[in-house]
């Protein structure tokens, strides 16, 4: 009973917050609603007994990805009111994407129920979440896992290539040089006679 109530609360908050991501006028508020959506989704994972996945979702998406979103949204000086003027012209494309997604979800749900409603928990009940993940991720899906890692590596290298510029005449600090300095190279003690000056 409580689990059902919790599910409906979390699910309705997730859907409502997801709607507000699109609907809210202030982009920073949008990101905040996005975070709320992630949180509700994490709550749903916990209800299914997948606490590892839930915490990973919070750590990766809320703790890192959404922080970067917030960073970008705060830094960019984009006139979002101006952007939203063309909103209706994108509506057909958005509608088509939404319709395809809806169809896919309906198909997924139908397939699930036709199969007699398989349990969503790990096949071996004695395993913890983490062990269950590791047991398939590094054996059965090791290839796919490593491929995903390579895709991320390519993305990282791509970001570096796009932003790294080799400019002439840039002064850089070298930490090694700074730390290798001694008192002798930096300070010269001069004993000056009174009334004579340096020159």
């Amino acid at each position: 009973m409580i689990a059902a109530i919790a599910f409906y609360i979390l699910a309705s908050v997730a859907v409502g917050a997801a709607f507000m991501v699109v609907a809210s006028r202030n982009p920073v508020h949008s990101v905040m609603f996005l975070i709320l959506t992630f949180f509700s989704a994490a709550g749903l994972f916990i209800l299914m007994g997948a606490e590892f996945l839930a915490l990973l979702l919070i750590m990766v998406y809320v703790g890192a990805v959404a922080v970067l979103f917030l960073f970008v949204v705060m830094m960019l000086d984009v006139d979002f009111v101006e952007l939203k003027k063309g909103f209706l012209s994108f509506a057909p494309i958005g509608g088509i994407v939404a319709a395809i997604l809806l169809l896919q979800m309906i198909a997924l749900g139908a397939a699930y129920f036709m199969d007699g409603g398989r349990p969503l928990v790990a096949p071996d009940a004695t395993m913890t979440n983490l062990e269950a993940f590791g047991a398939v991720l590094y054996t059965k899906y090791a290839g796919a896992f490593e491929a995903a890692g390579f895709v991320l590596l390519v993305a990282m290298i791509g970001a570096i290539v796009l932003t790294l510029r080799d400019r002439e005449g840039v002064r850089r600090q070298s930490a090694v040089d700074q730390m290798a300095r001694t008192r002798e190279d930096g300070v010269e003690l001069v004993d000056i006679e009174p009334g004579q000056g340096l020159g």
């Binding site: 920073v28 915490l55 809320v62 703790g63 922080v67």
Partner: peptide
């Protein structure tokens, strides 16, 4: 006393940054 306690602490402490940023 949850099984993924370390992960929980990491996840929650990574959220502290929101208070400061917002």
């Amino acid at each position: 006393d949850i099984n993924v306690g370390v992960l929980y602490v990491l996840a929650i402490s990574s959220l502290g940054v929101y208070g400061i940023m917002i």
